[in-house]
Design a protein around this nucleic acid. Structure first.
Length: 244
DNA sequence: TAACACCTGTTC
DNA sequence: GAACAGGTGTTA
């Protein structure tokens, strides 16, 4: 489910409803009795702040959901009773985590990084460009769906060694990364299998996808059959004719 | 980079 | 029954 746009969607919703609420009861005792100050996002990590040096952090990995209201499900892994309602963390595949003051290493946020910063990052890298933009320690927030779509928009072959791209291509790619991420946020994220927002509702970016999972279907630009390869262990979709 | 591991559910 | 899945960490 969860790339930057999905986490951002949940963050915006929780920011509206949780701030000012007190945690009554929680599996993580540190936050009991504390008041939600703000909700923020770092890359794909969501953080609920309960005061100085007290963050409740979530990583959704593949199937995490953070839902305010409703009832627990068979995949509910953590429950937070707040003064105004209940927050459930569900995660079918159990890859996700919930931690107090989590530590992680992230590059600059994909929506904030500058062209210059992006150029410096990729200038000498030999790894394929798709693997580079999905490396959270380089830039934070881009996952498989939006990486595929951004590369299609920029007409760049996902296998291209990063350092072989021209500056012009790299700056175009960054603008396309931001474009698809912003569009993802606009449509409330991508709901292909498990993702739902903080109110249990799906997003609609899947109706606007460029190439992700469109193998054997016609390229939306040139009608050529979209190919699927595996890169870095991830399904990778591209048009061999218009992504050079 | 690749292969595999972590899990469970859905699709081929 | 195998392959695959919005992620990431470890091991060769």
């Amino acid at each position: 489910m969860p790339e930057l746009p999905e986490i951002e969607t949940v963050k915006l919703q929780l920011q509206k409803v949780l701030v000012g609420q007190i945690c009554i009861k929680s599996d993580l005792k540190e936050i009991e009795g504390k008041e939600v100050q703000e909700v923020r996002r770092m890359g794909k990590v969501l953080l609920i702040n309960f005061g100085p040096n007290l963050d409740l952090g979530f990583h959704f990995k593949m199937t995490g959901q953070l839902i305010y209201g409703g009832l627990p499900t068979k995949h509910t892994r953590a429950v937070f009773h707040l003064s105004g309602g209940t927050l459930y963390f569900n995660d079918m595949r159990k890859f996700g985590w919930v931690k107090i003051n989590p530590e992680f290493t992230l590059g600059e946020d994909a929506l904030k990084i500058t062209t210059l910063g992006f150029l410096r990052l990729l200038g000498k890298l030999k790894k394929p460009i798709k693997i580079a933009i999905m490396d959270q320690t380089l830039i934070a927030g881009v996952g498989n769906i939006y990486a595929n779509d951004a590369l299609w928009e920029a007409q760049i072959n996902p296998q291209t060694p990063s350092h072989k791209l021209q500056e012009k291509q790299i700056s175009l790619l960054l603008s396309k990364i931001k474009l698809v991420l912003r569009e993802g946020i606009k449509y409330g994220g991508t709901s292909i299998s498990d993702y739902v927002d903080a109110h249990g509702k799906g997003g609609t970016y899947q109706d606007h996808i460029r190439v992700y999972k469109r193998n054997n279907l016609p390229c939306l630009r040139c009608k050529t059959k979209i190919e699927k390869i595996v890169l870095g262990g991830r399904g990778t979709y591209y048009c061999h004719k218009c992504q050079i």
